[in-house]
Design a protein around this nucleic acid. Structure first.
Length: 363
DNA sequence: CGTCTTTGACCCGCGC
DNA sequence: GCGCGGGTCAAAGACG
């Protein structure tokens, strides 16, 4: 499937920005203390969405950040309180809930596409991207299915897919978040199969590649530990889940789609009922308790718990998970400050998070 | 027995 | 054109 490195247009943009602003210094890291975060919601977004004042939205904010001080694109997008999509979880719920800093793909951001919750499956960036490359089913998500079916044999040889050279492959929307944890692979409720591991150039820690095991679901995620701060795990999700719940309630959360609200938002669902979905038994829950999530953009919300997480996203899809929260979210008064951790990260973050983003927003 | 992880090889895009 | 790095495949092994 996707073979293209993280070089989407967006990414390039990001990189450019990154270069441009590569200077900076350090920014204070965000620590979001979300009280119910881990106990209550999937991503720490407890039922009270509120707490959220920052949650996902923050991410969005970041996005803007990336795109430019100009605006809160995602924010705007999300603004209209949309009915919580209760259906497809488009985005994989990152173990943490509140994304702190998100970097959206510039292209998307620019387009400001409203996140379509329901469309999770089609997360298409509706705009152009989708068509451009995705044509023949090269996509991760749906495309994969086709490939698998039809090309299995051919594939045997390993990726032979003739791809059009002219077209650059577009990657699915991606978003990354950082978590402070001892565990690399956080259980986010979905089932993932590890399909590769690679050494990361600037990091002593390898990067692991996972794919959602659900049939037809091409969501992928990469997990990498920050070289600078081994305690930080950077997880990048790519694509949107085409199924409601974790593929198989096998080990993770054994909840059914119907009950899982977390899926509602498209992944990060933070619906008010979210809390119900976390079972104390679930690994997820445990993780929350054990890990700290760093929120890059979060101004201090805080409250009680000590969870910190940073979120970075480079995809338009992200919004999807926001939606759930959309109705409750509050526009962060302040842009994401900076992710100290991110700044240091040289791995995925580099690709995904523009330096600028990591820095303090300067106006 | 089925599923998942590990691991080496291969392919691709990009920079030089 | 070449080399590098990233991403993916798939066989083999490990595990429950």
């Amino acid at each position: 499937m996707d073979r293209k490195p993280l070089n989407d247009d967006a990414e390039e943009l990001i990189k450019r920005r990154h270069e441009q602003s590569s200077s900076s210094g350090a920014s204070p890291s965000f620590h979001l203390d979300i009280p119910g975060a881990f106990g209550g919601g999937v991503f720490g977004l407890p039922c009270d969405a509120e707490k959220g004042s920052l949650g996902f939205m923050d991410l969005l904010g970041v996005q803007d950040y990336v795109s430019g001080p100009a605006a809160y694109s995602l924010f705007d997008l999300l603004q209209p309180p949309q009915p919580p999509p209760l259906q497809l979880p488009a985005q994989p719920p990152p173990p943490l809930l509140s994304p702190a800093s998100t970097v959206m793909e510039s292209s998307d951001a620019a387009n400001q596409q409203p996140p379509t919750p329901a469309n999770s499956s089609s997360l298409s960036p509706s705009s152009n991207e989708g068509q451009t490359n995705k044509t023949a089913g090269e996509e991760d998500g749906e495309g994969e299915e086709e490939e698998e079916q039809g090309n299995n044999q051919e594939k045997t040889k390993k990726q032979l897919k003739p791809k059009k050279k002219n077209q650059k492959r577009q990657r699915e929307p991606r978003f990354a978040f950082m978590t402070k944890s001892d565990v690399d692979h956080l259980d986010d409720g979905y089932r993932w199969r590890k399909y590769g591991q690679k050494a990361v150039k600037h990091s002593p820690y390898p990067r692991s590649y996972y794919r959602c095991t659900s049939a037809g679901c091409g969501v992928k995620k990469r997990v990498e530990r920050s070289s600078e701060d081994p305690s930080i795990v950077v997880t990048t999700y790519e694509g949107q889940h085409t199924h409601l719940t974790p593929a198989t309630p096998r080990g993770s959360l054994g909840f059914s789609p119907e009950t899982a609200t977390y899926g509602a938002g498209g992944g990060f669902g933070l619906s008010s009922t979210t809390s119900s979905f976390l079972h104390p038994q679930s690994n997820f829950y445990q993780h929350h308790q054990q890990h700290q999530y760093l929120y890059g953009s979060a101004p201090s919300v805080n409250t009680g718990s000590s969870a910190s997480a940073s979120f970075i996203s480079s995809s338009p899809s992200i919004p999807s998970f926001n939606q759930a929260q959309t109705h409750n979210f509050v526009r962060p008064s302040a842009l994401p400050r900076s992710l100290s951790a991110l700044q240091r990260d040289h791995g995925l973050l580099e690709d995904i998070v523009p330096t600028r983003m990591r820095e303090e927003p300067k106006e």
